[in-house]
Amino acid sequence: MTYTSLKQSFCCAALLVAAIFSAQSSASNRYYADNTLEPTTGFAWDWSAGAGYYIEDSYLVGMNSYDVGAELDLSIAVSYDNFYLDFDHNQLSGGLVLGYSLINKYDWGLDLLGTNIQAGFDEQGLGFYNDGIIDPLRGIKKRNYDFDTGLRLTRRFENSQISFEYLHDISGAHNGWVANVFFSHIQPWRNWEFRSGIGLNAYSADFTNYYFGIDSDEANAARPIYSTDASTSIMFEFHAEYPINQDWVFLAGWLTTWFSKEIEDSPIISQGYQHKAKVGLRYVL
């Protein structure tokens, strides 16, 4: 095992162990104001599970423009005092977040957090599709999932939240930084709940070139060498939830991301946007 991979393993293990074994928690869903777990002393957890049907239009070349399928949604929030682990699939923008609440006062929050920003992919595309090698991607090197740590500053309002994050990769994947600002709003209407959010992400040149650059080993006649600068993206998401009964919730969601030309111009990118929509049911304990 190399020193880098040892270091990566140690960092991930340390965060996991800290999240599980350290000792008032304010764990939160990353982007929305209402999912804050109420402060508690000791260990606490919360979960929901469901299944949905999605349709996705990916930006990678060779990927089916309208990929459809079923997927399981599992969301788990675990907290122990100020530490928390939030595996969130309630929002399309969700994911795994490990965090530690440094400050939580007067509607302001400052958290240390670790999370995955970018999904890895290889010549088979995004890993979970398993459709075999995609011709336009044949011969590219594997891009690993990253794991980024940094700070998040949050200001909560009654039904809205704005957050700022600055994160740096510690997995060794791209060793770059990512910064984002995200504003979300929750709007109840009768028994429905509508959740919407808009975010602006900035990616370092290291990040952008790791995932979207093409080096000389990967270049071919149809795929020229590509090197670029820092990039940006804008994301918009909308979710609707409706209670069917005490245990089951209907949900629908839409996520669109638009990418700057530094990403859109990459030879392994077919378009400057991605869409994902899904409908499903969720069981809540």
Binding site: E38, T40, G42, A44
Partner: peptide, 10 residues
């Protein structure tokens, strides 16, 4: 959450 859905171990 603290009333119903949170489980305290310690």
């Amino acid at each position: 959450r603290q009333k119903k859905r949170r489980w305290r171990l310690f």
